[in-house]
Simulated assay, not measured.
Amino acid sequence: MSQKLLRHRGYQGTVEVDFDKSCLYGKVLFIKSLITYAGATPDELKASFEQEVDEYIADCEAFNVEPEKPFSGTFQIRCSAELHKELSSEALNAGVSFNKYVVALLEQGTREQ
């Protein structure tokens, strides 16, 4: 199976191809800082990605700055008032908080895929 994202130390990065320059490249996703990497082969690309992530974390430590985290674990969604009410009622009937109920539904949905 073809890997579409690189992963290292909680960070994810893209895998892109530049046919004109015959190289692979990418960038770290889900943070504001721009961290890019490149390589001639998939192994070189992966090594470059890991090196850039490690250097980013080391630079943050050297400057006593907290590295950006790709995800906080918190997000907001918008839905209809009717759906919100229905989910709230189902959570109440299940005897759990609204948050726990929705998280369980999301986890169930990701396992089914």
Rank of each mutant, 00 (worst) to 15 (best):
V28N: 01
E50D: 11
G26R: 03
E82K: 14
Y56A: 03
T36W: 09
G26A: 08
D43P: 05
I31N: 08
L34N: 03
T41V: 13
S72V: 01
L106G: 14
D54S: 09
G109Q: 07
Q76C: 12
E90S: 04
G73L: 05
E61K: 15
K100P: 02
V102A: 03
L105G: 09
V65C: 02
A47R: 05
E86L: 06
C79P: 05
K69V: 06
S97H: 01
K85N: 13
L24A: 08
K27L: 10
K69I: 09
T36V: 13
Q76V: 10
A94W: 01
T41C: 12
E90P: 00
L83M: 08
E50Y: 09
E44V: 09
Y56Q: 04
S88L: 10
S33A: 14
L45Q: 15
A91E: 03
Q51H: 12
G39V: 07
S22I: 06
T41Y: 12
G73F: 02
N93K: 15
D59R: 10
L29M: 11
S48W: 06
I77V: 13
F30A: 07
K27S: 13
K32N: 08
V96P: 04
I31R: 10
S88A: 15
D59Q: 13
A104G: 12
G26H: 06
V103S: 04
E107F: 03
Y25G: 03
K27G: 07
Y37C: 04
V102L: 06
P70V: 00
Y56C: 08
E82H: 11
A62S: 14
S89Y: 04
L45D: 15
F71P: 00
G26K: 06
L24I: 11
E90G: 00
S72H: 05
P42F: 12
K27M: 09
F49T: 03
A104P: 02
L24Y: 14
E61A: 15
L24R: 11
V103C: 02
Y25N: 02
A94N: 09
P70T: 00
F30W: 05
L83K: 03
H84W: 14
H84Q: 15
T36Y: 09
I77G: 00
F98M: 01
E44N: 11
V96H: 08
G26I: 05
L24T: 10
E66Y: 00
D43Q: 13
N99A: 08
K32Q: 10
E68K: 01
Y101I: 00
E66S: 02
R78T: 14
L87I: 13
A81M: 14
K32H: 07
E52S: 08
I57S: 01
E82G: 13
P67A: 12
N99R: 12
N99P: 11
C79Q: 11
A47D: 08
